[in-house]
Computed example of a mutant assay.
Amino acid sequence: MSFFRSSADFTVRLISLSPINYLKGLFKMYKKLLVSLSLIVTCFIISGCHETTKADQSKDGYSFETLNLEGKKVEQHVKKSPNKVLVIGEKNAERLIYFGLEEKIDKLAYLESVNNKKIKGISVLAKEWPSKEAVVKSKPDLIYGISTAFQKDRLGDFNFWNEQGIAIGTTSNYKNGISPDNYFLEIEELGHIFNMNQKTDRFIKEQKESIKKVTDQKKKVGRESILFVASDGRGNYYYYPDEYSLVDEVVRELDGNYLDLGEEVVNLSYESLIKINPEKIIFTSFMASEGGKDSLKWLEHDSLKNVVAIKNKEILEMNYDDVIRGNENISNVYQEIYDFLKVESKEK
């Protein structure tokens, strides 16, 4: 401010000088002004560039936080945005593809369905858990996978891989629980890992807006009792507690009548299902064949014909990964469950 005040006084004094001296003084004044403005513009340009590309320009790379198996935050470090990623879990591969990161996927391991066309063309390192030796040999700069992979007797823990100079990013942390809020935290973390926060922030905003449009219609949801049943794909059927899926929170956000059978996984038998006698069933199966209904045969057993949900054919089969991991459009999960629960003519 003092510069402009003194410049104004300087201009007034110049008026009383000779024309030549006046012009010389005026030139000096504007020269100082132009220098000051150029310095200001330069500062803005430098600070702007630093803000948008600071991760790429840093010689030391950048850090991000992820969750370990115990659900605790662990700082990870990368020298640059990862370009050779080993993905554990095909749903995670779908997520990277959705966000335009397909070229960064080097290999994929631990397949969770049959004939998934979305991951066609990606090199498969192992259909199940890969060996440490195979991973080391592939030389990834990041392992992005479900948290249960990082056990000492499976893929190895954080310490092992960090000592190899390989960073880890995790998803589906059962210790903290599978929930819509934690799903969005995973998307936020993805933005940090690949230095694309604006893109992931925009996605989160759009998804939350879409979810609100669905939950705003919850007055149309009936009060029928809803049981969530999950198959492991090996002939066993379970009730999953809250931290194992998105279903409980979605149903509750829609004001549905979710049946809570406790905090432990419950192995369901024909007898137990008859006793529970739900009015609606949301069903999913691990490793289900594409478009197949084989797992539903368990619910077609003759002894279950009088269970209300089965008798009235009130069964919704959902994709396992969508309800356990969360797909690339979590608002679709809300919409699918809402469409199943709504009663058009009923208001609560």
Score class of each variant (00 low, 15 high):
Glu188Phe: 03
Gln198Leu: 08
Val214Asn: 10
Gly235Gln: 09
Asn195Glu: 07
Asp248Gly: 13
Lys280Asn: 09
Gly191Met: 06
Arg234Val: 08
Thr171Tyr: 09
Gly256Asp: 01
Glu264Met: 08
Leu254Ser: 11
Leu246Asp: 12
Ile168Ala: 05
Lys208Trp: 06
Val250Ser: 01
Met287Pro: 05
Val214Cys: 07
Val221Met: 12
Met196Leu: 11
Ile204His: 04
Pro241Gly: 07
Glu189Gln: 15
Leu227Ser: 08
Gly222Lys: 05
Asp255Cys: 11
Leu227Ile: 12
Phe286Pro: 03
Tyr237Trp: 09
Glu209Leu: 07
Lys275Met: 01
Phe184Lys: 12
Tyr258Leu: 11
Leu273Arg: 01
Ser245Gly: 03
Gln217Pro: 04
Tyr270Cys: 01
Val221Lys: 04
Leu246Glu: 11
Leu268Pro: 01
Glu263Trp: 04
Phe283Glu: 11
Lys280Phe: 14
Asn197Trp: 07
Glu249Gln: 15
Glu249Ala: 15
Phe184Thr: 05
Phe203Ser: 03
Asn257Leu: 10
Asp260Leu: 10
Lys208Ile: 09
Thr170Arg: 06
Tyr238Pro: 10
Lys220Met: 06
Asn267Glu: 11
Tyr258Gln: 05
Lys208Gly: 08
Glu209Tyr: 04
Phe228Glu: 12
Lys280Gln: 14
Gly177Ala: 05
Asn257Ala: 07
Glu188Asp: 14
Pro278Thr: 04
Ile187Tyr: 03
Phe228Gln: 11
Leu261Gln: 13
Thr171Val: 12
Glu189Pro: 05
Tyr174Pro: 00
Lys220Leu: 12
Lys205Gly: 00
Asn173Phe: 08
Ile274Thr: 14
Ile187Val: 15
Gly235Met: 10
Glu253Pro: 00
Glu279Ser: 10
Glu249Arg: 15
Glu209Cys: 01
Ser269Trp: 09
Asp242Ile: 00
Lys280Leu: 11
Gly169Leu: 01
Asp242Trp: 04
Thr171Lys: 00
Phe286Cys: 10
Ile178Met: 15
Arg252Leu: 14
Gly169Asp: 05
Tyr239Met: 03
Ile193Phe: 02
Leu227Cys: 09
Lys218Asn: 11
Leu254Tyr: 05
Ser269Asp: 06
Ala230Lys: 13
Lys208Leu: 08
Glu271Ile: 02
Ser172Trp: 10
Gly222Met: 02
Asn182Tyr: 13
Leu268Thr: 02
Leu185Gln: 14
Ser179Trp: 13
Gln217Asp: 04
Ser285Val: 02
Asn236Met: 11
Glu206Met: 09
Ser285Gly: 12
Asp181Ser: 13
Phe203Lys: 12
Asp255Val: 10
Asp260Met: 03
Lys213Arg: 07
Gly262His: 00
Leu261Ala: 05
Glu263Val: 06
Asn277His: 10
Leu185Tyr: 12
Ile166Leu: 01
Ile204Ala: 01
Leu246Trp: 05
Asp242Ala: 13
Glu189Asp: 07
Glu279Met: 06
Gly262Ile: 04
Thr200Lys: 01
Asn197Thr: 14
Asp216Ala: 04
Tyr239Arg: 06
Gly222Ser: 13
His192Ala: 15
Gly191Ser: 12
Thr284Val: 05
Gly233Asn: 09
Gln207Ala: 04
Phe228His: 15
Tyr258Gly: 01
Asn182Arg: 08
Tyr238Val: 04
